[in-house]
Amino acid sequence: MAGSHATFWQRIQQIPRYYIYLLLAAVVTWQILFPIALPILPSRVTQGVYDAIAAVPDDQLIIISTDWDASTQAETGPQTEAIIHACFQNGKRFAVMNLQPPMGVKLANDIAQRVAAEYGAEYGVDWCNWGYKYGFDNVLIALAKNIPKTIGDDFHGNPVTDLPMMEGVENIESVGLVIEITGLANVTELWIGLIQGVYGTPLAGAYTAVMVPSYYPFLDSGQLRGVLNGAKGAAEMEVLVKRPDRASAIMPVQSWAHMLIIALIIIGNLGYIFGRRRTTERPS
């Protein structure tokens, strides 16, 4: 079919894949250098995350479980940053922690330090980092019953009981919201199965776009208060906290890249339909 007798429609199905990659890279580069801005409107599910943060009582803290690493940083990094902005803007204390993979707690720590400096927030008073805690189910079951004993030392190796914001924090009753930011499947299920479903602690999520369809049933059932949907969710959160940043810069690029992919899908399908028609019409 790919020989000299191949028709135009057959040939456009045989485009070498690296030409398509180059085309995509060209569109992405063009839009990063010369963006054509499109409006970003916060969706109901993103608003749900923001409202859940705003609704946390002042005597309770928020756990931000940053279970992501460099491989998903383009989506989860801006999500983490926008969520931390929302916490500081609403005057909520939060603790960063990490179940897996461990790199997330360092990357999130860098983001939290940078954002805290903007608000003049102090480590140990307005926010803290509980570090990487290995053991999944075991950690969450123990955390629900005794937070200081389960966490032990913070990210910097100091006892968490020495931090002023940990005064009065005993068990999961001291937590007003858990936000799970991850590119890993099944971590949210642990929080639901061991914390939200058992103790009723509100839970919200921020996921890579690949994962989001799997978590819509949890939104519908009320187990999740809201979800940030990949870079789009991060951009919407940036709009809500009035801090347009990397995710907002991604969105116009993403839209144009999607248009290119849609065009390629249409061309490929036209090639398939007309190429097949020609083959069946041609006498053998």
Binding site: V28, I32, S71, T72, A74, E75, T208, K232, I250
Partner: peptide, 8 residues
């Protein structure tokens, strides 16, 4: 969408 976000 997720893969393109990472690439961007």
């Amino acid at each position: 969408m997720a893969r393109i976000s990472l690439f961007i």
